[in-house]
Nucleic acid binder design. Structure first.
Lengths: 107, 107
DNA sequence: TTGACATATGTCAGATTTGGCCTAGATTGT
DNA sequence: ACAATCTAGGCCAAATCTGACATATGTCAA
């Protein structure tokens, strides 16, 4: 439930909601992307500051290099969940993460 | 990858990481819970301010009443992802969400 | 009390996400 | 140039999450 939301709406002949609702949905998805990219940048930035490779970070997170690459790239297959968890594990505080998200729209 | 992380670590006889790493992991999970609860409160608060039922909100989100209840309860089966997406859909800005998360630890 | 509505909680099939593997291209050091 | 290292991206089985449904409990007005 997410990627095909729009299709669903269309298939349903728009009776699902008003144009307003569609716009909210669109805006929300846009915002999610912005937030993901912000967190992604933060992750890369932190990793570089620690001067470690994606592989090293991956091990530390219990994940894989490819996933770290996708995280840092803001790949759609990466959830905000994974990004936030990862940041917390490498020492980010909720405060820092909050600020990062708050600034998302500006980026 | 998440709920059984500790088991994995134990099964591996602790060679996976230092005590420090285990503590980071624990702290991170604690923080995730705090963040989830904060977002959950924010969601409930917003819904109530709009004076709508969980069912109504559910329809608006394209979800179900039971899931909304779980979201507001901070149930472990709810991802930060879903909470953030939901908040964005009902009009929260990234700024507000960021502030909510930043304050998570204090709650 | 009864009925209508709101919320909580369990379950589960289907959808999404993730770790891991592999490979190609990029970057760095010598 | 060469080797070593790093990063990007595709792929997929396994793990996790989600919507929907059923049902229990709670609230409140008639």
């Amino acid at each position: 439930m997410k990627r095909d939301k729009r299709e669903k709406l269309e298939r349903a002949g728009w009776k699902v909601g008003s144009m307003q609702e569609f716009l909210d949905l669109t805006d929300a998805e846009t915002a999610v992307v912005e937030v993901r990219v912000s967190l992604a940048r933060e992750l890369r930035s932190r990793r570089r500051r620690q001067k470690i490779s994606q592989s090293t970070l991956a091990k530390r997170l219990g994940s894989s290099q490819s996933r770290v690459a996708k995280m840092e790239a803001g790949d759609p297959s990466v959830s905000l969940d994974l990004l936030i968890r990862s940041l917390l594990r490498i020492g980010s505080t909720t405060e820092e993460i909050g600020r990062t998200i708050a600034r998302a729209a500006l980026a």
